[in-house]
């Protein structure tokens, strides 16, 4: 067992890494800004300095968005993996992202809704619907929830929602250009005012998940054990489900379809912090935020002067990882 002082030290390092990534995300880009100027922009704002304007308008909101979305998706993934005891579980694989996306595209096509506040609720509805659907489908049959069955159900539901989304976009071609970058996942071009209504949701859900850590530890030791210890497992599962929908739904509402963060980060965090969810969940938060910040920085530099959509970056990073996990799972199954 790792002592808590070791873990505290690890968390501290993770926090430092996050701060470094955050600062890097603010100063690096097409126009790199010296650190001193960046510091000035916050302490001694000069409305005439272009650097200061770039910093406070685009860079800061972008970094904050990436940070919260990364943390939210990572924790959502960790909760899902604990809930289903399935190493392949994550919002992207289970169709939650696709469901939220479809809901948003549907509503923006049919009712021409464009404000982000409305998007959030729609995304929640879509995410919740898809999540419940996949979880329900994964549990049918005599052998209960098996990792493979739920992944396959997720793949089918994702295919269905993606196809419907594509159909809607083809019908409504004018909307495509504005929505395409977002389909690919992006944290750019979201001003702070736009993002602000979503951040409280994410923040509350993140904090709430921290309080669940102890209960989740009991839950993952098995349904019978948890019940024997007096845990109301259904209540805990319900809470976890709500948090997953809240975290994944609001992440999709702000940043679109960012895949694989929810899958990779919990695995890395488990390797570093162990399986105790009281440490694992904050670890996921920090690592998820750092990963997405770094991916976003890389996305700016890979094909200058254009940008790689960040969802594409994470997918390219995540695919090999998923395949590695899939090989392990399939071996364990057979």
């Amino acid at each position: 067992m790792m002592s808590s002082s070791v873990r505290s030290f690890q968390l501290l390092i993770a926090i430092i890494m996050l701060v470094v990534a955050f600062v890097a995300s603010i100063v690096l880009g097409q126009t790199s800004i010296p650190l001193g100027t960046a510091f000035d922009a916050f302490t001694n704002y000069d409305a005439n300095s272009i650097d200061h304007i770039i910093l406070t308008t685009t860079r800061l909101s972008r970094a904050l968005t990436a940070m919260f979305v990364g943390a939210g998706l990572a924790v959502a993934g960790a909760l899902m993996q604990a809930m289903t005891r399935n190493p392949l579980a994550s919002p992207g694989i289970f169709g939650v992202n696709a469901g939220a996306l479809f809901a948003i595209v549907l509503c923006s096509t049919l009712f021409s809704i464009a404000s982000l506040q409305d998007y959030i609720w729609i995304a929640f509805a879509g995410a919740g619907f898809a999540g419940v659907l996949v979880y329900g489908l994964g549990t049918i049959g005599r052998d209960g929830v098996t990792p493979v069955k739920i992944v396959l159900a997720g793949a089918a539901i994702t295919a269905l929602f993606v196809s419907f989304t594509q159909g809607l976009l083809v019908i409504n071609q004018d909307g495509l250009d504005s929505i395409l970058f977002w389909l690919a996942g992006s944290v750019a071009g979201r001003s702070l005012e736009l993002v602000r209504p979503v951040l409280p949701f994410l923040f509350i859900a993140l904090v709430a998940s921290l309080f669940l850590g102890r209960h989740i530890n009991i839950l993952v030791s098995g349904e019978d054990v948890a019940k024997g210890l007096g845990q109301r497992t259904i209540l805990i599962r319900l809470l976890m489900g709500l948090l997953v929908v809240g975290l994944a739904g609001s992440a999709v509402a702000i940043a679109g379809n960012i895949a694989f963060v929810g899958l990779i980060v919990p695995h890395i965090a488990r390797a570093l912090f162990g399986t105790d969810h009281r440490w694992l969940l904050p670890g996921c938060m920090l690592l998820g935020a750092t990963l997405l910040l770094l991916a976003d920085i890389a996305a700016r530099f890979l094909i200058m002067p254009q940008e790689v959509p960040i969802g594409v970056m994470t997918a390219l990073l995540g695919t090999p990882f998923f395949i590695y996990l899939a090989r392990q799972t399939a071996v364990a199954q057979s």
Partner: peptide, 27 residues
């Protein structure tokens, strides 16, 4: 090759290739 592994790996690749396709379309 087991069918199960084939399908799981296929699902992973579908996601990766989909991202690349979106990437090309966006650009």
């Amino acid at each position: 090759v087991t069918p199960l592994r084939l399908i799981l790996i296929g699902i992973g690749l579908v996601a990766g290739l989909g991202a690349m396709t979106t990437f090309m379309i966006v650009l």
